[in-house]
């Protein structure tokens, strides 16, 4: 695997859009060619090299390329967007749309990510070692087809509406989630180790939300089903015991929320 470094020279106030920062776009280019690639600052076109020092060596194929982004990327949108192969490591906290529409490869962020990360993800892996914003792994506006495959792991917390309209794949949040976790989801798995945000599973029709943390309350349109020792979803076993709720009955949904019993006794009917 070849390694290519993009070292931030600092960030402008008007944000950058740099969807070229992904193996698909940088493979097969010299460092000079990469520095000359166009990125966007508001309505202006600027050179990638103006904001990033390019070091290392690119590979011929994206599969053989690891891009390492270093430094302040807090005003850079679309890093890794539509990525399909290779590796991308971001040692910093990128702005919006990190890995949006990604279909393959692996992204690791050693920092926090902004909103709309991994929007409509259809494959690959995204690991966020900090917090994620709102709409992680969610559907774009109007689309009823959200995340369909792939894996997202968040070590910290995640924001509102993660996995909206999700129809496949898996999101794991080790911290807590914001409101409307998995809203409108129709398949796939969301696993939450910390606190579950309010209105989880709202309008879900199918799929699973597994909660190891505390859920203050569930929607009135979810109904208690049973307490089960463990649950197996798509060949993966989650150890409980869990309190299982089914819903969203508002949608005549058959989605499941599994709440770890020992942390959620208040949600077990007497």
């Amino acid at each position: 695997m070849k390694e290519l470094y993009l070292i931030s020279k600092g960030q402008p106030k008007v944000p950058l859009e740099a969807e070229v920062i992904k193996p698909d776009s940088l493979a097969g280019l010299s460092t000079e060619e990469i520095a000359n690639l166009i990125i966007y600052r508001g309505n202006r076109r600027v050179r990638l090299g103006e904001y990033f020092e390019v070091k290392g060596e690119s590979a011929d194929n994206p599969e053989e390329l690891r891009i390492i982004v270093e430094g302040d990327v807090s005003r850079t949108k679309y890093i890794g967007a539509e990525m399909s192969a290779g590796e991308l490591i971001v040692n910093g906290s990128p702005y919006m749309y990190l890995g949006a529409w990604m279909s393959g490869g692996k992204i690791v962020v050693n920092g926090n990510v902004g909103d709309f990360a991994a929007l409509e993800m259809s494959g690959g892996e995204l690991v966020i070692n900090g917090n994620a914003g709102n709409y992680l792994g969610a559907a774009y506006r109007g689309n009823w087809r959200g995340m369909s495959d792939g894996l997202i792991v968040v070590k910290g917390n995640a924001g509102a509406e993660i996995g909206s309209w999700m129809m496949g794949g898996k999101i794991v949040v080790e911290g807590s989630t914001g409101p409307f976790t998995g809203v409108h989801m129709s398949d796939g798995i969301i696993v939450v180790y910390g606190g579950l945000g309010p209105r989880a599973g709202a309008q879900m029709t199918w799929g699973s939300i597994v909660v190891y943390g505390y859920a203050p309350e569930l929607l009135p349109s979810f109904s208690f089903n049973e307490v089960i020792p463990a649950v197996e979803i798509e060949e993966e076993r989650f150890e409980g015991p869990f309190i299982e709720y089914v819903g969203d009955l508002a949608e005549e949904g058959e989605g499941s929320i599994y709440l770890l019993e020992e942390k959620n006794k208040h949600l077990k009917p007497q």
Binding site: L219, S223, D248, L249, A250
Partner: peptide, 17 residues
């Protein structure tokens, strides 16, 4: 939102709190 959810569930003849 909770009230709407309950109304929708009730409309479909599910039991509500």
């Amino acid at each position: 939102y909770e009230l709407l959810a309950a109304m929708r569930a009730a409309l479909k003849e599910y039991e509500i709190p």
